[in-house]
Amino acid sequence: MTRHIDDLPERIGLLRDAAAARLVARGVLTGQEEPPLVAAIRAAEPIEDDRSRWDVRPIRELLDEAMRRHPREERAQADAWLAPRLHATLRITRAEAADTGVWNFLALVVGPDYLVWRHLPTRTKDGETPAVTADRFRGLHYKQGFARLWWAAELFRDADDYRPAVVACRNQDVLNTVLRLDIIDHRPTARAVTRLLEQGTVTIGREVNALATAINTAASTLMYDVMAPDDGPDADGLRQWIDDCDLAPPASLDTLPDGPDDGPIPSGSVDTLVKQFEKLFAEAPVRGREAAGTTP
């Protein structure tokens, strides 16, 4: 059961939480039925902006391609492929992305079958029918199936360079744990985390979780913004990139697209935090790792 690209509306609309809640039926979560297309479209509000950034078609093309490229047993890897491309296609501000209506619409109109493909559990206990959790359809930014990818690309990219975001999305524990932390709203902090992944300081899930806990706890007494200054993204650079949406070709399926050129993260600040986080991680308790200094 899939949404066919030619049956979809041309434009993204806003599907309010209350309307979305009524459309997420049990059968939708198990993949046995699709959310009613006509009812979902009718319940959505139009967006007053006729630029191509709200076009449905390029996004549906990406979903179809992601499912084509990744075998079902490796579907988690589709996250790292889709996140930067979704972000580069859906050129919106954080204020616009904070509107859950956008994500509800993508989930219930554009790609319900994608969410089932990506998130339906393969096993369940006691022979229950497997079902996707409702928060993949309508939920918080780090849970909802499309929002989490867009936000991961947004929060982990280094200006127009999506490579750090790809690194982040290859690790499900980063998406599940780190993405929800407020501390990564500081760009050098987010970049330092992906640097630690790149250099192999942290790899497996429990290391990522231990690191996340350690740096999040330390942030209650240490202010990373002062230790690692960042003038922040350049709003004009982002605005320019969004305004260019009608000029840009579709995001490449094979090479990584470019994101908004809104000012690189100061590398000196990232270096400072990498050192700091290495130290915090070395002292952090990791399940299965012997605590530092207690070797018999």
Partner: peptide, 9 residues
């Protein structure tokens, strides 16, 4: 800051 937009200046 704003929680909903993950903004931090």
């Amino acid at each position: 800051t704003e929680g909903a937009t993950n903004a931090r200046t």
